[in-house]
């Protein structure tokens, strides 16, 4: 298969960027989107040109490294997949494909399609954990967790931190990311003692990073590779308001 790629090239956070057109030729339909970029890059490297920088690691949809806007959609067409799980058979032969980086003030571009998502780490550092030191845990089965709660917590915990929610949101809001972690921990009995502190601190950290506000449009959920529900955003809102006004 052949494609026309229009890829955003940008040398650094403050450098101007532009779309550059490349031809991707002889791409096997079984190739993943990243493998297609590998093929294009191999051509560029062989000609001594600077290949397209993009982030990737596990290439099986779990590490959360890859992520780009493909034809106007985070992780490209399809539901519940990351960019590495997108296969070229999804596209039409000869199609033009526009590739852009995640765009958000909180995710400055490092190079081309690579953005800095360390804002997510700082949000987690603010409280996305249960404060237990190694060695002080009680016997595992002394904490009973109703299966329904464990399942719901797992749904939320499936977040891979790729940033597609921010990329999809018209306000570049990180609410789904934060909600997933807050919900995961608030649903479990182990997470309850800290739930108030946690939600206040994480939301404050989220705001400090310059993400936008949630306007309840659900675009984040539609593009989330792990199909994390905005019901968790409702839970986050509840957790927050409860912590702010109704506890103690």
């Amino acid at each position: 298969m052949d494609f026309i790629l229009k890829v955003w090239r940008q040398n650094g956070p403050d450098a101007p960027g532009r779309l550059v057109t490349y031809e991707a030729t002889n791409i096997p339909p079984e190739a993943s989107f990243l493998e297609m970029l590998d093929i294009v890059n191999a051509g560029l490297e062989a000609r001594g040109e600077d290949p397209i920088a993009f982030e990737h690691d596990c290439r099986e949809g779990i590490c959360g490294s890859c992520g780009m806007m493909i034809n106007g959609r985070p992780h490209g067409p399809g539901r519940g997949i990351t960019t590495c799980q997108l296969y070229m058979r999804q596209f039409k032969d000869g199609q033009t494909i526009v590739v852009e980086p995640w765009r958000a003030k909180a995710f400055p571009v490092i190079k081309d399609l690579v953005v800095d998502r360390s804002a997510f780490d700082r949000i987690i550092a603010a409280g996305g954990y249960i404060s237990i030191n190694t060695g002080s845990a009680p016997e595992a089965n002394s904490i009973l967790v109703p299966k329904e709660d464990a399942d719901l917590a797992m749904d939320a915990a499936a977040c891979i931190g790729c940033g597609a929610c921010v990329a999809a949101c018209k306000n570049a809001s990180a609410m789904l990311f934060v909600a997933a972690k807050v919900a995961h921990l608030a649903l479990l009995p182990q997470g309850k003692p800290e739930r108030r502190r946690r939600v206040l601190a994480m939301v404050a950290a989220m705001d400090a990073e310059g993400f936008g506000n949630c306007t309840n449009e659900g675009e984040c959920e539609a593009e989330c590779p792990k199909n994390i529900s905005i019901a968790h955003i409702a839970r986050l809102n509840r957790e927050y308001l409860r912590a702010k006004f109704f506890s103690r």
Binding site: P77, K170, G218, E219, C220
Partner: peptide, 11 residues
């Protein structure tokens, strides 16, 4: 894009 969120919310 044909992938409205499962919750049924969309822009």
């Amino acid at each position: 894009g044909g992938t409205t969120s499962a919750s049924g919310w969309f822009s």
